[in-house]
Write a protein that binds this DNA or RNA. Structure first.
Length: 901
RNA sequence: GGGCGCGUAGCUCAGCUGGGAGAGCAUCGGCCUUACAAGCCGAGGGUCACAGGUUCGAGCCCUGUCGCGCCCACCA
């Protein structure tokens, strides 16, 4: 071997911390997780120095368990926060959870059901107590899972959308909006879930395509002159009809406008009205109008001042507004009977199959029933205008194309129904005086009526939509409405990181509320990340059984590997198809990092030599320092621009393909050698590059980097913290940028790879001693190769190397040309020459193919005349180089052929 | 119906302002070389969905077609 072996383990050196042979993330991660929390490492001081950088966590449901979407979301936020700390910013990341009204109530109700109880058995107060108990016991599970991901949140500032401070904010906002006339109470048709017994906002309704039937029903005209046929998918709602509508443009029917028809089974007279909503093409062209049970009919009813007749109660049974024989029936039963009765009267026409989409509850998936009731609303138009105008000038959305979707939603916005008929949630701060009927909306619970002084006040039974409190999150978490240091320092927040599925539910509403109450946008940037899907691109869901559980993955591969995987996938604007295999792959990367460190630890003294990195004048050290500078710059800009996948890629390539594959191999002789000065300089560079790389990697994989930082030795006087999370981003070292080193390295790598290639492709066993002769083209190249002669020997596994302008290898040689330098590996007695000949032909073929392309380009006058001069020059140079290579290869081939007879 | 995204190697995906097609995994061959077999050294593999256009030059820009996916609004 051309260089000495490493010192035997044991020796006289004092015992040092021996690293495990393979990286075991489990203990390590738990250790640092606890360390950070106990030391309050991520608790910032609002009065402290540094430009503010803040993020509020999208609060997961208390009922939830961590899924891959959370894992991705947390990883990206954590990268931003940890990176920002490295940039010297004063970083606050607020954690918390959402009380998730309906979802949580459902969970507890289900639990009660197992005990044979309903919420009504307990009563409101006891029931809420019960939910709180559940929340305290089970609800914080999600928080420990956030910890497990390594999220650098400030646990001292944890919030809950239903805790006291947030309740204070909710009341303040409600009362203020009410006083400004932006909250009102009114009758309206809303989406009603018969199962959850509550109103749902439009966007809480999902649509599912379901097969249905279009029933044709005859409505006799009141004057006995005939009948109109309407088509309906919901015949039972005819009991609540209040008109028939036709399109006024429709020549067939517009003559009936103004007449009346008789509602079958009921006998009510229905006006026939003209409304352009009616589609002439669809069905029969006649539409029965049922304002109480259809959204569109409700609108038509409003336009024409029609009677609103509701025939269904809150549980979905026919009520007293329908003829007696139908009362008490369910929707399905009523439909059956209505159809039978119509048929009996000869009023039922044809029935055709008709697929249509049906609204279902986003929580329980039961069919939504449009239902008229008294609800609370927020007027959205005035709020929406401001929220729209703030983008993109004050708030920028990344990727940018989501801006359009955001606008679209705001432009079509309807008033927001905020009351929910459940118990778990912020109760609406409105009271009615039983004595005089006065409506009192107040921040504090009133004791007497403000109008008549009566103490008989009854609070509104309803609670607020969960998203109402979520909409205040960016400032409620910072203590609003109190005047806090947090608000002053950290509002508006720097970036909101979330999935697009809640762009409307949440992001747009936070914009509105922030602008309304803080008079300032809630976040400067919104980063919309992808949805995490399974390998086939399907949404992960329990029912499909394709869920990859992040906690399982952490258990198997460690949080760092999972985080790195998610980061490497997080390209802007694309969904993530996750597979376990990928996570396993990146676990290997973690192990690689670990082993590189092990190697360093075996070759670094307990105290890092106080050498200047510039003192290392050899190729490997100059090159790696140059590359480190480039990587620093590229990681910083990638992070600034939310190109997360690029952070991962850059680090992966640098650490594995450059630092490990080349640098570590190249410095072995110096580390094992006798030249103390060169050794010290190399040790210093090795330590510098490794430790700075750990800092660069830290935002993505916090645990392993912390562990490594902790075991790595230091130079004397290095007083930096043991805690890598608190270290600044590595400073630039511009004088280490060294293009010459890059060029030299390219030559060196070419020679080593070229030689390895000859050996491997000719199937020469690695142990076989080979020689290498290099005929150089310039003194500069000769100098570079001579300086690295030992490395060529060790890396290419070569016995003797001869370098010089006049060097000539034997005719029977394997050959390659690297930047004009001719490599010859004598093959006499080693291998049969046919194989080498074939190899040379293959390489020549490739070369000629490329040359043809470039030559063609240069022959094109259009290219030569129009392309920028430097591009043309570049092509010319390329072609010249390839021509030279071709000539030399051809000659070498001819020489080989000459000895083959 | 309106809007958006995506079709690049067998698979999953990069490819930022247009200038000689990349990675990981998988496959094939060779290696237990002393940090790492969770590893090392090499190899094969692509009409960048299709058709036009702009340009000296297109994976990238424009138009259209096909295919996949999503969101919004929904025809009773």
């Amino acid at each position: 071997f051309p260089f000495p072996l490493p010192p035997a383990a044991g020796g006289t050196d004092m015992a040092r911390k021996e690293l495990a042979k393979a990286y075991e993330p489990w203990d390590v991660e738990e250790k640092w997780e606890t360390h950070w929390e106990q030391n309050q490492t991520f608790t910032p001081n609002p009065d402290g120095p540094g430009e503010a950088y803040s993020i509020v966590i999208p609060p997961p449901n208390v009922t939830g368990v961590l899924h891959m979407g959370h894992a991705l979301n947390l990883t990206l936020q954590d990268i931003l926060c940890r990176f920002s700390r490295q940039q010297g910013k004063n970083v606050l990341w607020v954690p918390g959870t959402d009380h998730a009204g309906i979802a949580t109530q459902n969970v507890v109700e289900r639990q009660l059901k197992e005990e044979g109880l309903t919420r009504d058995d307990l009563g409101r107060e006891k029931f809420i107590e019960r939910v709180w108990e559940w929340k305290k016991e089970k609800g914080d599970h999600i928080l420990s899972q956030i910890r497990r991901m390594g999220a650098s949140v400030d646990w001292t500032r944890e919030c809950f959308t239903f805790d006291d401070q947030r309740a204070k904010a909710v009341r303040e906002v409600f009362v203020s909006l009410f006083e400004q006339g932006l909250i009102y109470k009114g009758d309206y048709i809303i989406n009603w879930c018969n199962r959850c017994h509550t109103a749902l906002a439009d966007d809480e309704v999902e649509h599912e395509a379901k097969p249905g039937k279009l029933h044709h029903v005859k409505y006799p005209l009141a004057d006995g002159s005939g009948h109109l046929i309407v088509a309906t998918t919901r015949p039972e709602t005819m009991l609540a009809d209040s008109a028939i509508a036709v399109n006024p443009e429709d020549e067939r029917f517009n003559k009936y406008i103004g007449k009346t028809a008789i509602l079958p089974l009921v006998g009510r007279e229905l006006p026939i009205i003209g409304d352009s909503y009616v589609d002439v093409e669809f069905g029969t062209g006649c539409l029965k109008v049922t304002p109480a049970h259809d959204m569109n009919d409700w609108e038509i009813g409003r336009r024409h001042n029609l009677e609103v007749i509701s025939i269904l109660d809150e549980k979905g049974f026919v009520n007293e507004n329908a003829p007696e024989k139908y009362r008490g029936l369910s929707v399905t039963e009523a439909r059956k009977l209505v159809l039978e009765d119509l048929d009996a009267e000869g009023l039922l026409g044809e029935i055709v199959d008709h697929d249509h989409s049906v609204g279902v509850c986003y929580r329980c998936k039961s069919t939504i029933e449009p239902h008229v009731s008294t609800q609370w609303f927020v007027s959205m138009k005035p709020l929406a205008e401001k929220a729209r105008a703030a983008v993109p000038d004050k708030t920028q959305i990344f990727p940018e194309h989501w801006t359009k979707t955001y606008y679209q939603w705001l432009d079509e916005i309807r008033d927001w129904c905020i009351s929910r008929q459940i118990w778990w949630g912020h109760r609406i701060p409105a009271w009615t005086c039983e004595a005089c009927g006065e409506l009192i909306v107040s921040k504090d619970d009133p004791t007497v009526c403000t109008k008549c002084g009566s103490s008989k006040l009854v609070q509104d039974e309803d609670v607020l939509d969960t998203w109402f409190s979520s909409a205040l999150w960016p400032f409620s978490t910072m203590g609003w409405p109190d005047d806090t240091r947090e608000l002053a320092k950290y509002y508006p927040t720097s970036c909101l990181v979330t999935g697009f599925d809640i762009l409307f539910f949440w992001v747009a509403r936070m914009m509105m509320m922030g602008l309304q109450f803080m008079e300032e946008i809630p976040f400067k940037h919104v980063y919309i990340h992808a949805l995490v899907r399974d390998e086939q691109g399907k949404k992960m869901s329990k029912s499909t059984g394709n869920v990859i559980d992040p906690l399982d993955m952490i258990g198997k591969y460690g949080a760092d590997a999972l985080r790195f995987t998610l980061t490497s996938f997080a390209a802007m604007g694309r969904d993530i198809k996750l597979s376990e295999q990928r996570i396993e792959g990146y676990k290997h990367f973690m192990n690689k990092v670990w082993n590189a460190t092990r190697f360093a630890m075996m070759n670094l003294p307990d105290e890092i030599p106080d050498a200047d990195v510039h003192a290392a004048s050899d190729l490997a050290n100059r090159w790696i320092l140059h590359r480190l500078e480039e990587v620093k710059a590229s990681i910083a800009s990638a992070t600034d621009e939310y190109r997360f996948n690029e952070i991962a890629q850059t680090l992966y390539k640098f650490i594995w393909s450059e630092f490990c594959d080349w640098y570590l191999e190249m410095i072995k002789p110096a580390l094992y050698g006798e030249d103390e000065q060169a050794k010290a300089a190399t040790q210093r560079v090795l330590w510098t590059v490794l430790s700075e790389t750990m800092i660069l990697l830290h935002p993505v994989t916090p645990f392993i980097t912390q562990e490594i930082w902790n075991v790595l030795p230091r130079p004397a006087g290095d007083e930096r913290s043991e805690d890598i999370a608190t270290l600044p981003y590595p400073e630039k070292r511009p004088d280490c940028l060294d293009d010459k080193a890059v060029a030299e390295m390219e030559l060196f790598m070419g020679v080593v790879s070229g030689t390895r290639n000859i050996r491997t492709e000719l199937l020469i066993e690695p142990a076989k001693k080979l020689d290498l002769l290099i005929r150089t083209v310039s003194d500069a190249d000769k100098a570079v190769l001579e300086a690295n002669l030992g490395l060529i020997q060790s890396l290419a596994r070569i016995e003797n190397v001869t370098i010089g302008p006049d060097v000539k290898g034997p005719k029977a040689s394997g050959a390659a040309v690297v930047q004009g330098n001719e490599l010859s590996v004598p093959l006499e007695g080693v291998v049969d020459f046919d194989a080498e000949l074939a190899r040379l032909d293959k390489n020549l073929g490739k070369l000629e193919k490329t040359m043809k392309g470039v030559a063609g380009k240069l022959k094109n006058p259009g290219f030569v005349n129009n392309a920028p001069a430097e591009v043309v020059e570049g092509e010319k140079r390329k072609l010249a180089e390839m021509e030279e290579e071709k000539t030399k290869l051809t000659q070498l081939k001819a020489r080989l052929e000459s000895v083959m007879g």
